[in-house]
Design a protein around this nucleic acid. Structure first.
Length: 423
RNA sequence: GCGGGCGUAGCGUAGUGGUUAACGCGUCUGGUUGUGGCCCAGAAGAUCGAGGGUUCGAACCCCUCCGCUCGCCCCA
């Protein structure tokens, strides 16, 4: 028992009973992205490690300590994708999508890999729905992707979520702000948490993100980026806000919202449940990344997008007891008891399936009682019974397993019609 | 990387030092000769997470390790 294999830590099997949830989420993603004119793209599960080091940023936690890296047999340094955006940006450049009508709207669903401590809603392999609009600087597009994500949640039955919106301005104005922020924190440096002292040098914006008690006293009085945005970024955010308001989406401006990736500028957002302050509550987040494609060696190309974790969406669905559609039971459970049933059973099952009737064939050699019990467990509507008697006469018994269980004799060629008629 | 909780059949649990580890669900078989759901009976299925220690005797007490889980950090 204990020596048997287990799924690697932080990974999970998605058992049949969970599949309806996944199907519902993916269906919603397909439907909603289509409503917004997105086309699906799929990118590899691994990429060159350097793509993320340059793209996501080598001071981010994701790259610094969470990447699954490996060298393949040819010596290439690769990484399992820790997040989706760089791969799609890479594909945009690699396939010359700048020559497609702009902007390009792409979506995908893709496994992500991060080496961190698993807990509820956090896994080493998880799956994201990813939407990216590349080639637009229009703030209406920011609002559009947020609305898209919002509508996915609505479509799967999660109603109580809210948008947290922030802006981290553009690179140059942000540099000036970061100086001011550091000046503010510098006198208090020796009283801050270790993490924050480290961030002071490496990634000062994250100082505001701290939840460490030692840092909290300084947070409120710290200069807030959102209060001193450049006029351009300020105007940008106002349009996003107005558009979201027009879409009827509740928005809270969060001045402390800082996301974990280096490439964001201006718009950043998260979507969180409004009815529960759970730790791993964020179901989706994203932002604008006008600089990323340039970092990856392409021309300046503004873009905006989001990722949303399917596992977390499903946790929310379960929390709200959202009903999901179960796949239909088989139409027919084929019971057989004959000396040489192999040919007849296979042909009968085959002819039914060719008519799109779903058939499960009983295990050979089991008793009638056992086969009927299996038929019942399968939830099939009909039992079709063939034994020596029936085969000799070219007929089958068709029994309706619902209700009283009426049974009648039907010629073998007529079984499909008899069932299709009732179904 | 840091803290808390928990590991007994496929699942959920009982058993807290004394002979062959119990119950429910599930699985399989049967309740006459070819008929399900309910019911009844039976069977299979557990080296009690692993190793070491204490003891005449350990699922139960102690130690170490492993695994799972929840939280912190971070993120989806």
């Amino acid at each position: 028992m204990s020596s048997r294999f287990q799924a690697p830590r932080g990974t999970q099997d998605i058992l049949p009973e969970m599949q309806p949830y996944w199907a519902a989420v993916l269906r919603a993603a397909e439907d909603v992205t289509r409503l917004f004119g997105f086309r699906r793209i799929d990118t590899p599960v691994f990429e060159n490690a350097a793509l993320f080091e340059k793209g996501s940023g080598d001071t981010t936690d994701i790259v610094e300590k969470e990447m699954y890296q490996f060298e393949d047999r040819g010596g290439d340094r690769l990484a399992l994708t820790p997040e989706g955006t760089p791969g799609i940006a890479r594909a945009y450049l690699e396939h010359g999508m700048a020559s497609w009508p702009q902007p390009v709207r792409l979506w995908t669903t893709h496994p992500m890999f991060r080496y961190d401590r698993p807990q509820k809603g956090r896994y080493r392999q998880h799956t994201q729905i990813d939407c990216e609009v590349i080639g637009s600087a229009d703030p209406l597009v920011d609002a559009e992707v947020i609305e898209l994500l919002w509508r996915i949640y609505q479509a799967v039955g999660i109603k109580s979520v809210g948008v947290r919106l922030g802006s981290i301005d553009d690179l140059e104005p942000r540099k000036a702000y970061v100086q001011r922020l550091k000046e503010y924190y510098r006198p208090h440096l020796d009283r801050l948490s270790e993490d924050s002292r480290r961030r002071f040098d490496r990634n000062p914006l994250r100082l505001l993100d701290s939840k460490d008690e030692r840092d909290l006293p300084y947070k409120d009085a710290a200069p807030k980026l959102v209060d001193q945005l450049s006029p351009e970024a300020q105007a940008h955010m106002e349009v996003v806000r107005t558009a979201l308001d027009a879409a009827g989406i509740p928005v809270v401006i969060d001045p402390l919202l800082v996301r974990g990736l280096d490439y964001y500028n201006r718009t950043v957002f998260e979507i969180v449940p409004t009815d529960d302050e759970r730790a791993q509550g964020t179901v989706g987040g994203g932002g604008r990344y006008d600089g990323l494609l340039e970092i990856l060696g392409g021309p300046h190309t503004p873009a905006v997008g989001f990722g949303s974790g399917i596992e977390r969406i499903i946790l929310e669905m379960q929390k709200h007891e959202v009903a999901v559609a179960e796949p239909p039971a088989p139409d027919v459970f084929l019971i057989h008891r004959a000396e040489n049933a192999a040919r007849a059973v296979t042909q009968l099952a085959g002819s039914l399936r060719s008519r799109a009737i779903a058939v499960v064939v009983a295990e050979s050699g089991r008793s009638m009682k056992s086969q009927f019990r299996s038929a019942d467990a399968s939830k099939a509507r009909f039992a079709v019974i063939v034994g020596d008697d029936e085969l000799a006469r070219g007929v089958a018994m068709v029994k309706d397993l619902r209700g009283g269980g009426e049974q009648r004799e039907v010629p073998l060629e007529g079984v499909a019609e008899a069932i299709a008629g009732v179904r």
